[in-house]
C-alpha cells in the first residue's frame, strides 16, 4: 500500500511537532532546575533558552526584557511564536486532522485532548506555581501518543515517516540541549567550574538520560562523559547516534533514497569524528552548529524526495 506524499508529509510534521513540544517542555524543566540550583548571582539568564531555540529575533520583536516571565510566556503560552509548546501542539493536531484514517483511532482523540488542555492551561502555567505540572502533563501526553503509535501502527509508510520526523527532531533537540552547556552561557571557559556537575546533571535529566548514564558510565557527572554519552551511546534511544541509526533504518526500504542516505552517512561520519574529550567548549559549540545544518539538509532532502517531488 503506497501513501500520498501529502499524507506522508503531514505525518512527518505531526511527529516533529509532537517531539518539539515534548522536548521544549523537557528543556524548560531542565533549565529551571539549573536556575534553582545555582547560587544567586552566578546563574545564567533566561535568554539562554532563546538562543538554544534560535528564537532571539522573534522574541525581540515583541518583548522587551528577556526575564523569566517573558521568556516562559513566549515558550509555553505564546501562539504567535510558531515554536512555542501550544503552537507545536496545534500544528501537530492540524496534521493529524487530515491523516486520521491512517492512524489508530485514539490518536486523534489524544492529540485533540492535549491541544484543548494546552489551550486552556498555558496562560496560567507561565508562573512557577503551575508550570511544573503543566510541563509534566505535556511530556506524559506526548509519551502516551508515541506509545500508542509504536504499539499500534503497522510498520508501513505511516510508521516510517512518523519515525523519521520524530528522530530528526529529537537529534536536533538533543544537540540544542547540549549546547546549553557548551555555548553562550559559558562564554568564558572555566567560569562555572564549581557548578559544572549541577549543570550537566540537569541537562541529563532534561534528556531523561540520567538513569541510563549512571548505569552505563557511573555516578560521576562530568562534561566530556555526558557529551560522549548523549552523542554516541549505541544503546540509548535518546542519543544522537541511536537516532541516526533509526533514520538510516527507515530510509532503507524507501524508493529513491540515495540522496537522503548520503546525508545521513555524512552526519554519522561527523559524529564519529568528533571527540568530546579533546574538544574545547567553543569547538563543541561549533560542532553542534554545523551538525544542525546537516540535519537541516537531511530534512530538505526528505522533503524534495518524498513530499514535494518534481
Amino acid at each position: 500500500m503506497t501513501m500520498l506524499s501529502r499524507v506522508a508529509e503531514r505525518l512527518y510534521w505531526m511527529a516533529r511537532y509532537l517531539e518539539r513540544a515534548e522536548d521544549t517542555a523537557r528543556l524548560v524543566m531542565a533549565y529551571q532546575h539549573i536556575i534553582m540550583d545555582i547560587p544567586k548571582g552566578s546563574e545564567p539568564g533566561w535568554d539562554v533558552l532563546l538562543s538554544i531555540l534560535d528564537a532571539n529575533p522573534v522574541f525581540n520583536e515583541r518583548y522587551r526584557a528577556a526575564n523569566e516571565q517573558n521568556v516562559l510566556k513566549f515558550l509555553i503560552a505564546d501562539l504567535d511564536n510558531v515554536s512555542s509548546i501550544p503552537s507545536s501542539i496545534k500544528a501537530a493536531r492540524e496534521n493529524v486532522r487530515t491523516t486520521r484514517d491512517v492512524l489508530p483511532e485514539e490518536a486523534w482523540e489524544m492529540v485533540n485532548e492535549l491541544h484543548l488542555y494546552v489551550q486552556e492551561k498555558s496562560e496560567t502555567s507561565v508562573g512557577r506555581r503551575n508550570r511544573h505540572a503543566f510541563l509534566e502533563h505535556v511530556i506524559s501526553r506526548c509519551q502516551m501518543i508515541n506509545g500508542l503509535l509504536m504499539s499500534n501502527l503497522s510498520r508501513d509508510h505511516s510508521y516510517r515517516f512518523i519515525k523519521l520526523g520524530r528522530l530528526l527532531e529529537r537529534s536536533d533537540m538533543i544537540t540544542r540541549v547540549i549546547d546549553v552547556g557548551a555555548g553562550d552561557i559559558l562564554e568564558r571557559e572555566g567560569a562555572f567550574e564549581a557548578i559544572d556537575p549541577l549543570l550537566w546533571g540537569a541537562l541529563l535529566q532534561g534528556l531523561s538520560a540520567m538513569g541510563a548514564y549512571r548505569r552505563a558510565v557511573g555516578p560521576l557527572v562530568e562534561k566530556n562523559a555526558v557529551v560522549e554519552f548523549v552523542f554516541s551511546e549505541q544503546m540509548f534511544p535518546r542519543s544522537v547516534r541511536f537516532c541516526l541509526s533509526g533514520i538510516r533504518e527507515e530510509l532503507g526500504p524507501l524508493r529513491a533514497n540515495k540522496d537522503a542516505l548520503r546525508v545521513v552517512e555524512r552526519a554519522r561520519r561527523k559524529l564519529r569524528r568528533f571527540d568530546p574529550n579533546v574538544a574545547t567548549r567553543e569547538e563543541l559549540h561549533r560542532f553542534i552548529d554545523s551538525f544542525q545544518l546537516t540535519l537541516n539538509d537531511l530534512s530538505a532532502v526528505i522533503t524534495d524526495t518524498w513530499f514535494q517531488p518534481e
Binding site: M3, S5, R6
Partner: peptide, 9 residues
Amino acid sequence: YMRTVDGPV
C-alpha cells in the same frame, strides 16, 4: 497520476 512516496501512481 497521484503523487506518492513510491513515485507517481
